[in-house]
Amino acid sequence: MTTQKKAISLSVNGISYEASIEPRMTLADLLRGELVLTGTHVGCEHGVCGACTVLLDGRAVRACLMLAVQADGASLTTVEGLETDGELHPIQQAFIEEHGLQCGFCTPGFLLTVHELLENSPDPSDDEVRDALGGQICRCTGYQAILRSVRLAATRLRDAQAAASSQGS
């Protein structure tokens, strides 16, 4: 049943990897098992919970539903890629301050989904946030603190943006 392995190369969090893998291996298993990026979590393995969400060329995808070979040549961001030199990303910081997590198992998936949302829509309405997060399941928080976290993160990111552009001008 094992089939011929296939060589792929991809970049994850700015680091280039090459791997020789079975075509049936999921992207989640590649990230977690082969590349030891275990921050990407697997909650359902059938595409419903969103825990395994990563960014593939900037778009949120479910790593449990994709085959690793489909990511050949792609550039990925996982939760491990959010911080810079040990500095938390403002979204991570906002989740801490607003208690947007309890067990934290869903959190990497939420962080990356929020990251995509705020890239595209820096000042989202609550409805937009609900829309974007409608496919992410959190069993612990009841989502209210997550909403508060997203609002705080959006504000912080906008402020940082404004500060940067006023400095630049």
Binding site: R32, T38, I96, H99, C103
Partner: peptide, 21 residues
């Protein structure tokens, strides 16, 4: 007081050692 949790920095960076890791 509603202090920040000591658990969270590991959790938000994906570093907490869940069993499957």
């Amino acid at each position: 007081r509603g202090v920040d949790r000591v658990e969270d920095p590991h959790l938000v960076t994906g570093r907490t050692e869940f069993i499957d890791n």
